[in-house]
Write a protein that binds this DNA or RNA. Structure first.
Lengths: 226, 226
DNA sequence: AAATACCATAGGAATTTTCCTGTTTTTTCA
DNA sequence: TGAAAAAACAGGAAAATTCCTATGGTATTT
């Protein structure tokens, strides 16, 4: 045999402990080496640029507060569609899976998989370019059959902003002021969203936003209100 | 030097990938060895029993669905108060920290700490019996000074039921029917809770319930409603 | 047994949310 | 450039939420 080719791997996860631990695990796999990991969400953009340039496989956590996995994936798809990205998540939410796959992820893993499956997956991704586990495949089939959840309701930027504000204690009037729009326009957004999402009231919107990670819960506020 | 003593460590985390990775990391620390890890949440009780018997330090994840870290910690405190437990969490929520420390955890770490701090912590725990990071200490001081969040606001059963229902799309009238109470009574609960929790409206209540895990989000419903 | 605290309930009213049906303005695109 | 689509905006009204204060019943305490 000649010199074995080493596959370079990048890890993007804001949980430093997990990232570092995962690094050790992957380095113990045959033929793989972690050459980069993002330590936190701040200025992830530039770091990813470097990771992309240097590595062949990227392990991407989707539960990140600053620039979340979806946005990152979207950016990657546009900038580096050839990059082999494996999505890592704690949630087996079908919406997440479909969203990431749609954005071009080559695989999707829950953080409770067995390490040996991860190794198998990485080998497969290196050799074939993708790896979809049984459970992920099942989700895709469901989606095609239409009995899965609605994929990608796709919101506009203002709508996202509105939803985020609707998840606070602000009244619609206050939201309108914040967005410098007429209260009636806000009411229009609300009504439209209620219809599209099949919900009855603001609580439904809040729950939707949380389940679909439009807002994130982890209150990283350093002593905000008095 | 004589034979170095090896400290045995157990990991209880339902994220197998994280647990396995963490194992590698800890084994790379000098003088520590992971001798046990719980693979999933099912029947965690008996496994913990074994872990406790064999190990000196236990790394306990608090974000577990089946038997969560709080319950596990409580059980450990009663059954094995001598066990050195380090709590691991993704959340820096002060409530969690205080709750775990109150239950007897010897330390509390976010999953985004630097591996070297974990090593330092484990050495300290082994030698001194506890390790509180600066941030955790700060939370404790705040709690003592009373300017931290209210620990354990302690709700009555009806209040918990009301809060849960308030997180759905039901109107208060419907909630009243569901709980077989007068709408005016429900309004009383609402008003009382708003005052106690310092919130303005129902959205505030929903957010509170989520942040304090009164309801849980992860809709693990396998195709429940038609 | 009286005082106290707590709970369920109520009337009434201001505010906010929700819904329905429009018009005007801006953007898109054939 | 002219038509169509999308977005912003409005009037008006019913329903729900929020807020205030108050009362009778029951359990607890002293």
């Amino acid at each position: 045999m000649n010199t074995p080719q080493i596959t370079h791997v990048a890890i993007v996860d804001d949980h430093l402990l997990f990232a570092s631990s995962l690094e050790k695990l992957i380095n113990s796999f045959n033929g793989f080496q972690v050459i980069f990991k993002a330590e936190n969400g701040v200025d992830l953009g530039s770091k990813i640029r470097e990771a992309v340039r240097l590595s062949q496989i990227l392990l991407l956590d989707i539960n990140m507060p600053v620039m979340n996995g979806f946005e990152t994936m979207k950016w990657l798809k546009e900038q580096h569609p050839e990059m082999k990205v494996l999505a890592l998540s704690m949630d087996d939410n079908e919406l997440y899976i479909l969203r990431m796959l749609k954005e071009g992820a080559r695989g999707y893993f829950l953080k409770d998989i067995h390490p040996s499956e991860l190794e198998k997956a990485m080998v497969t991704v290196r050799d074939k370019g993708f790896y979809y586990s049984e459970s992920v495949t099942e989700v895709m089939v469901n989606a095609l059959h239409g009995d899965g959840p609605e994929l990608d309701p796709s919101f506009r930027d203002v709508e996202i902003q509105f939803i985020r504000l609707a998840c606070t204690e602000r009244t619609y009037k206050e939201i309108a002021e914040e967005l410098k729009l007429s209260p009636k326009t806000i009411d229009g957004y609300r009504q439209d969203l209620f219809k599209r999402l099949g919900i009855r009231n603001r609580v439904g919107l809040v729950m939707y936003a949380i389940k679909h990670k439009i807002i994130d819960i982890h209150s990283h506020d350093p002593k905000s209100h008095p």
